[in-house]
Amino acid sequence: MLSKSNRFSRRFVLQLLGGTGLAIAFSSCRAQTPTTTAPLRIGLNVGNVPWEFENEAGELVGFEVDMIKHIAEQLNRPLEFLDLPFIDLFPSLLSQRIDIAMASITITSERLENFDFAQPYYDSDQSLTVKVDSNITRLEDLQGQEVGVENGSTGDQWVEEHKEKYQFSRIRRYEGLPPAMADLEAGIFAGYISDIPGMLHYTQDKPLLQVVQRIPTGEQYSFMFAKGNPLRDEVNAEITRLKETGQLAEIHERWFGTPPDEGTSTVDVLPVP
């Protein structure tokens, strides 16, 4: 394909032939060298509260949005957001449509095979969310009932792994939280398995829904990168800085109302997984 070396050799030949002036006149304008001021392309799943969602003014806000804004500022690079279904974040990184995927993505060994992660910045578990007027209070109550998950999420994986145990009749996979919640409220399925912080945040102002059970999974969130992308280390250094300066703690307090607990990944500087 059109490798850079070819173009350079062509330019070199021209420079040899006609001097710099001619070479400038002859040279193609296609030669683009990546610059540090190129925008950071962020793939995210808008609506994934409280990580990234649109507020009433239509602005993109959230825990991770605050983080990436700080980081981009430090790296002196503009931001470019691309709203994608959660499952599409993975192939998009591979095709380099985006540089960073952020959607409260859990670091898993399976994902680490094909992707790189920065250090974790949030500890999380799964949760069960149901309608307030249902009589379901725990997972065992879901036997023979349908459950909903975010397609390709760790909730999806957990359900897939535990569907025999709890005997779910069917797994409904959604793309994005709002349609799933609409179906849950409508009684199309009985329980929604998803990350606990998001669900707690979401149900704050939803009187019809409630989180009834924490499902301990010991998950940790981080930004995801294509394998070998040097950007990972740059961003990781910035996360360390955010933790050390206490800025991350401030962000946590802004979105969860309380400062993070000592000993959690939101406070401690951790190695990259």
Binding site: I87, D88, S92
Partner: peptide, 19 residues
């Protein structure tokens, strides 16, 4: 057809468009 595996396969397949 509705499983995570199948959906993942189709989603990845769609990404071919980018290439």
């Amino acid at each position: 057809a509705d499983s995570s595996l199948a959906l993942r396969f189709f989603r990845y397949s769609e990404e071919i468009r980018v290439f």
